[in-house]
Amino acid sequence: MRDELYQQTILEHNRNPRNFRKLEGATHVAEGYNPLCGDHLWVYVKVNPVGTIEDAAFEGSGCAISKASASMMTASLKGKSIAEAKVLFEEFHKLVIGELKPDEHSNHLGKLTVFSGIWQYPARVKCASLSWHTMHGALEKAKTVSTE
């Protein structure tokens, strides 16, 4: 049997998503869209002059996995530098495709390891990674990110 996908943390973030709002004064914004399932969101990041992420937020609609993932991502970004955010992006990406095992490989993922079983649900990996790709796109100054 696969690991339980809908763990309490995920369900809780789906019910009460953090930073679920438009972020005024955002320095980086991107739109993420997964045409396959209709998930559609905007990720906002506010980076201060010394390169620290002051605030992050998201808006949009999607399944519980994509919503919880965006919620936890925005929470984890605050206080990180852009370089640290990109490291986190790489680690999360490896996590959801099953290449990073949190027990075996050192990482900075913290609570985000709740998504460690999602590689066993290949059809749902993109749900978890959409907000991350969108955030990465925002930092790279891309306007629209599509995970098709």
């Binding site: 809908y6 399932c37 209709g38 999607g62 399944c63 519980a64 996995i65």
Partner: peptide
């Protein structure tokens, strides 16, 4: 209150194959 993709994954665990999407 339940996105079709979440529903699809959960009923799949009960052996039920439905299509979710557009």
């Amino acid at each position: 209150g339940i996105h079709p993709h979440d529903l699809g994954t959960i009923v799949d665990e009960d052996g039920v194959a439905i299509r979710t999407g557009h």
